[in-house]
Design a protein around this nucleic acid. Structure first.
Lengths: 105, 105
DNA sequence: TCGTAGGTATGAATTTTATTGGACCTACGG
DNA sequence: CCGTAGGTCCAATAAAATTCATACCTACGA
């Protein structure tokens, strides 16, 4: 069972769900960006500069959270997104490499 | 440019497009099945026993073709689907392994 | 030659996804 | 205390993806 914020446990992560999450270009870009950043990097949703409204942002980050790709931690006023690198690497070894190396132009 | 039947060249394959193709459970299943079968295996669209109409089948196989995951070759009356294993492996190393190992159910 | 099996193309209906505005909440700075 | 920045939730809408029926085509076997 996912926790109250919708984060699944590592063993609950579903590859199909992850593919669906990554099949949207904006979400892919977010993950590729986090995967490229230094280990443990935290970024606010807004900081990615995606060309959509606040509520759409919330929607996309919820999808990412629900897939298990990111975790969101409250930090003062804003909610920081963090890649679940260990969990992803253990569950789907090589996936992050593929994502980073095949990022669109 | 993809050929007349819609097969992209290896260098035209786009990871995003492939993720989209794989994000549908039926298409995922087709690819996982082909990836598990022996090298060079050919299967007719119908042989997968997917629970949809003929025209829907055509649709899904067109998506797979367009992504570059499969090639379709005419063989007598029917059109055989074949995994583009070499091309996929070269372009996206490790992807097929992930697909096979994380097949649902 | 006729029937059938396996596919395709097209257009329409349906279902899913993505997007947004607006109301609301909370922490922070002045 | 007030304004603002960053987010959430909800309901509505727009845009995609999926599905199907129908009509059509082609190779094969009886």
């Amino acid at each position: 069972m996912p926790d109250a914020e919708g984060h699944p446990l590592p063993e609950e992560m579903d590859f199909q769900t992850i593919l669906k999450a990554l099949s949207d270009p904006m979400r892919y870009e977010v993950i590729a960006t986090l995967a490229t950043a230094e280990e443990g990097a935290k970024r606010s949703c807004a900081s990615f500069g995606l060309p959509v409204s606040k509520s759409t942002l919330t929607y996309h980050f919820r999808v990412l959270r629900g897939s298990g790709l990111i975790k969101q931690v409250d930090l003062g006023n804003s909610r920081m997104a963090q890649l679940r690198r260990q969990d992803i690497e253990r569950r789907f070894p090589g996936l992050l490499t593929l994502i980073v190396e095949n990022r669109a132009g």
